[in-house]
Design a protein around this nucleic acid. Structure first.
Lengths: 248, 248
DNA sequence: TGCCGGCATTGATCTATGTCAAAACCGCAG
DNA sequence: CTGCGGTTTTGACATAGATCAATGCCGGCA
């Protein structure tokens, strides 16, 4: 109840209460005193270099993670080594929720650029969310949104053709960058064509061809990892109004 | 706090405390007194006939539902009318968790045979799970398992070929029937070939052909909706050890 | 009992996307 | 600045699965 401000390492780098991602991340909607309680359980971890694993499939789940800066992919591995990218995660998004059920992470989380994360010990989070209804509700919303996102990916993988998938993907990135205050029309693809392909259930050559095609159509401009969306409406049209283009 | 036992309709049909699905469903792990508190918030709803909607995409989420008897599909709709089956749900499984984030259901839930469900008002569930840590933990596990399942479906849709997908699907059903005390090797496909195809990202003809092929190989016997798995090991082999059969 | 409409099977053919291969490019390390 | 490995692009070709079409089956209803 008293407002001691702990002078420990994790407050040296921006605490939740000082974090610009507050509104997107777990703290959304918390009152100042609640925020402080959350701050007390969250640890800032050392930065990860590009290519480092945040966790690996099979390892015990102790904590969830929120991306503070940088970019991650999570990927599920098949027995035979085939890998499927299940998601890309940017600042303010949470990772690890797939592992709560079994107590073990079910996928690898890999940073695609130098990144920082906040670690949220899951037991503490459950305890705190019993005390703070707003936190509880928000955590439930976050998990639910992950499920909703997954349903969207199923729709994409199950019933859209290559170019529609890519259009949906670009629009999704655009929107997420916009929500973070970045340009919705110019951004960097942090992942390789291979990783995009894996996420979209396509081969890298198909991604490359589709990007080239969008470019010749004047819908986007691509150079390497740089993308500029020149005609978002046409992208949107590709995704939704595909009557006449029968799904494969 | 007092233990009034409400003599209302929902206690007339088996309460959670008397339900055979206790161990699979939300009550798993609760102490008797906790179970009773849960009972007090759960409503048994009138039975649904085959083809009835439990809820529709876009409608406000008030409650989650647990399947008591019967079988459901949930399907996401595309603007242009294409539909994608996102999951099949059998006794003891929960529906509706995709709608918590936005407050609205994001998919339709349709019964595939005459069914009964328990309704769990979501606000009450959140409140009660603040009081009963076991319930809270179990609810988190249930949501997490849904996410994990979704990742599995992505793997399936993104990197498996038609017959592998179907093999994985049959094994999954088999296992879920087994967990409910039914035969893992003989069961009824409650859904049409079209719905299986939608779930697996394939056309109904492909499902039909694959089933026929499995049959001629002696892996299964199918007659209409009746399936008998004759060689589960070969099904398993199809799913995991597919080196040499490059993914499409 | 017989009829009807949805469901399923099967065959012939088409096509989107995968596969293979070669060349160009890019950024990093020396 | 140069060389090298990994990435990307592009082309030619192959194929899994879609599409189209015809027939058969089954279960519900009169």
């Amino acid at each position: 109840m008293n407002t001691v401000i702990p002078i420990v390492s994790h407050t040296l780098r921006a605490a939740c209460s000082a974090c610009s991602l507050q509104e997107l991340c777990l703290p959304a909607g918390l009152a100042p005193d609640e925020l402080q309680k959350l701050d007390e359980i969250v640890n800032r971890k050392r930065p990860l270099k590009r290519g480092e694993y945040l966790y690996r499939a099979g390892s015990a789940l102790q904590s969830l993670f929120a991306v503070r800066t940088g970019f991650f992919k999570s990927c599920v591995m098949h027995d035979d080594g085939r890998e499927q990218v299940a998601g890309f995660h940017m600042a303010g998004e949470m990772l690890g929720m797939d592992g709560i059920g079994s107590g073990n992470h079910m996928c690898d989380a890999v940073s695609l650029e130098d990144s920082e994360v906040c670690e949220i010990p899951f037991g503490d989070l459950e305890k705190l969310s019993r005390e703070i209804p707003t936190l509880q509700q928000h955590f439930h919303r976050i998990m639910s949104r992950e499920i909703a996102r997954d349903y969207g990916v199923m729709l994409l993988l199950g019933s859209m053709r290559a170019e529609e998938r890519l259009a949906a993907f670009l629009l999704n990135l655009s929107q997420r960058f916009a929500a973070r205050g970045y340009s919705p029309s110019r951004f960097l693809l942090r992942m390789t064509r291979h990783e995009i392909g894996s996420y979209l259930g396509l081969k890298l050559e198909t991604i490359s061809r589709a990007l080239s095609h969008f470019q010749t159509e004047g819908i986007i401009a691509v150079q390497n990892k740089n993308v500029e969306i020149k005609d978002a409406d046409r992208l949107r049209a590709m995704v939704s109004q595909c009557a006449g283009h029968p799904p494969q």
